[in-house]
Design a protein around this nucleic acid. Sequence first.
DNA 1: GTTCTTGCAAAATATTTGCAAGACG
DNA 2: CGTCTTGCAAATATTTTGCAAGAAC
Lengths: 140, 140
Amino acid sequence: METQEIEALLSRKKIPLTSMRMLVLKEFLQVSTAVSLADLEERLNHSDRSTIYRTLKTFEKKGIIHSVQENNTTQYLLCHDHCTEGHHHDTHMHFYCTQCKKTTCLEEVAFENLTFPKGYKIAELKFVAKGICPKCQSLQ
Amino acid sequence: METQEIEALLSRKKIPLTSMRMLVLKEFLQVSTAVSLADLEERLNHSDRSTIYRTLKTFEKKGIIHSVQENNTTQYLLCHDHCTEGHHHDTHMHFYCTQCKKTTCLEEVAFENLTFPKGYKIAELKFVAKGICPKCQSLQ
DNA sequence: GTTCTTGCAAAATATTTGCAAGACG
DNA sequence: CGTCTTGCAAATATTTTGCAAGAAC
């Protein structure tokens, strides 16, 4: 993705441009699986962890990324839907492979029109399936 | 629940009886929401954390409890289904209230016959909805 | 006596915050 | 200047393990 596109995405989400934010977002656009804070720290040449951390918090809040927790860590993924501040729409399945320890989106398995009991105000849905991914399966 | 019933449940799951295991299981039968390791430690009069920890691991493995991760902690809940070692069937929704920070089962929202893309071997499903529960909602 | 369980201590891992310096408008 | 962002250091929270003593079979 072009630098211009990254800038456009950030300003569309009303996030002031900084070079760290561009770096982090660029990274998200390049990986296909979910990444943790520690992953990013390593991938970004050991940039400062708390800066990345706060960038992730900002991104998640503003609807650029979403997260799921698995294996005792928070994994972050790009939103493919049109999420905005306070309105996440990532109602698709995620898959955590217990072998390669990677989390991915499985948008094919989507949920529409879930009905909740009365009185529940739903803000966000987090679906994770655990198992073995096709790749690891074939290596056995 | 009677002590006898607790013992019966443990032996049905092929878990050797110990007093700590009985204490932990008794606790699960008494609470209506999910509990974390720290919760249990406190509820059990500050019994040893690592003993409780290993008890939880045993219970989860043997299909007495299941867990979901939210708010950076692992929350444990009794299995209501007929789970056994290696076969968890807790394919129901969980709800995490961002206000009271409690996690509960929402078995009304169940999923049957989920279809995954080819090649994925699914072992377990973890569904969490985040939002505000009826109780907290009504207190606003 | 061999295996399983417990308790204590401590390690390992992950998340989060305070604060001062710097960047930006 | 005033606000937002960064980097460093450190605190906090949570999970996990080593090991020796004790319990159970």
